[in-house]
Write a protein that binds this DNA or RNA. Sequence first.
DNA 1: CTAGTGCGCGTACGATGTATGCGCACTAGT
DNA 2: ACTAGTGCGCATACATCGTACGCGCACTAG
Lengths: 306, 306
Amino acid sequence: MTEAPYLAIAAELRQRIEDGELRPGERVPSTRALVRDFGVAMATATKALQVLQQERLVHPSPGVGTVVGPPPRARRPDGSAPERRVLPDGSLDLDRAEVVEMGIAIADAEGLAALSMRRIAAELGVSTMALYRYVGGKDALVVQMVDTAIGEFPLGPVPAQWRDAIAAVARVHWAAYRKHLWLASAISLSRPQLVPQLLPHTDAVLGALRGFEKSAALSTMISLFAYVRGIALVMEAEAQAEQDTGVTADEWVLRQGDQLAAMIAAGNLTAFGDLLADDFDFDYDLDKLFEFGLGVFLDGLSVRLR
Amino acid sequence: MTEAPYLAIAAELRQRIEDGELRPGERVPSTRALVRDFGVAMATATKALQVLQQERLVHPSPGVGTVVGPPPRARRPDGSAPERRVLPDGSLDLDRAEVVEMGIAIADAEGLAALSMRRIAAELGVSTMALYRYVGGKDALVVQMVDTAIGEFPLGPVPAQWRDAIAAVARVHWAAYRKHLWLASAISLSRPQLVPQLLPHTDAVLGALRGFEKSAALSTMISLFAYVRGIALVMEAEAQAEQDTGVTADEWVLRQGDQLAAMIAAGNLTAFGDLLADDFDFDYDLDKLFEFGLGVFLDGLSVRLR
DNA sequence: CTAGTGCGCGTACGATGTATGCGCACTAGT
DNA sequence: ACTAGTGCGCATACATCGTACGCGCACTAG
């Protein structure tokens, strides 16, 4: 799930193209040639070429082979759309969007753990492997999901005051996490892939802090996002636990109360004991919690950045 | 991996014991009886009884059955330790510790993704299923790993000043995350299970904030831990990516630079562009980053809590 | 000695992500 | 018109996972 067999072939071909060894118009080795030369299977070679195609470095020319260079403007043979449409430029974004949307829908409803390629395929009424024509793999799919999920929450006009601006970005982030509970862990799981829709957010924060030292601005941004995601993860864990066990946090405390009390007594955890002693009822409102932490962070920034 | 088949049986029996329907000294249904009555397999019944045994609600009496009540003081038949020792009280903590240690070792070296029951078993030179006698399942194992990993970092004396106290706890946490890169995501993944070794930490924070409003103290604690884990996740992602791809963050920026620049240009992300424009070199030191954010947070608390 | 117990672990099941290979529609060249 | 060769699409199959299952064993009470 984290390996890369066909990517090596793609990389090699890409190198050859960039070095000018393969010039535009020339034919890149056919899938069968790749099969022979690299000792791999047909589909692996196909996938390698597919990668380069998505990068628009090459394009297939039926009956000829795969040639170097971007695809020509599509000739629309008119009509004959095979149920699922293909965009004018030959890319397959429309179907990809469908797959990604379905992924998001499943993850929203049942969490990232319930997200499987088979599940998506079944839900869309297509075969499992058909998905791989649109998304490249599960990891890539998740990155796409993250990107479009964040894209649902555009920034809007950013306030002039740096403090308000930062708060606005943080709240947008929070809103996204709140709607898509899986988002927080998905962002951390997917390697530091480029998430284009995230760039305006980082830009807004950096812009708001333009007056300050650069390293401080960068540190601030990372800290801020780390904090927001941290709280979001708390929220996700709570939601998942409740879904899995059917027990809310309050009920859990009630049920585990004895064990907890015993441990508190055993470890003479006085402060903890005090907290539970008087019937103090902490309402587990994560929105308030988030705003509290955000306020603290911003106050701290005011001090630090003068 | 997240279901509970044998636990239902355990719960039912526990209920019967607590209700007094099964009194101390009486025999709980034998494994074979459970197999018959619940329509499950032998091992499932065995596991159910094992659960109650670990809770010390029942104990096995060879040749008789499993009887209600805590186990008697062990008779040591002396010698005859079958290679792997068993503790005097009959528990199996020693071997469990071995399993947990091995899990930690693997996760430390290759990340949580590389952690599998088979792998642990192979590394220990035992059969896979033998592990289940000591740890109950992978989820439980991970919780154990988290607990002992945190346990490696005891608190020591907590400073008197609330600010210093909180900082001390946060730094201990950070040290733990730093040594065990998998810890941050493991804590979030494992359900809100009780992690005993964590209690002193929360207690220390709550104790330091005793003077303040209770809900504020609790919010502060959660926010603090969320922040620390958030930064730790950034660190983990970076480490994982580097291990998987063999590319450091700096190299990545260099390599992806073009793509990034294109996106910046396309989205007119001016602030971002400025940052990359002059050859500003952000040294990606996560320790400094962590301290920066911690400082901000503490400054903010000073303001908020007066 | 026997009948019954719990224990330990080898085997096997049902998931997963995805590499593999086959049949097909298609086109360029003859 | 025909053939040889292409890329495409998907059904099949594999490796890996967590762990439920069931068998054989050592043991003890009667």
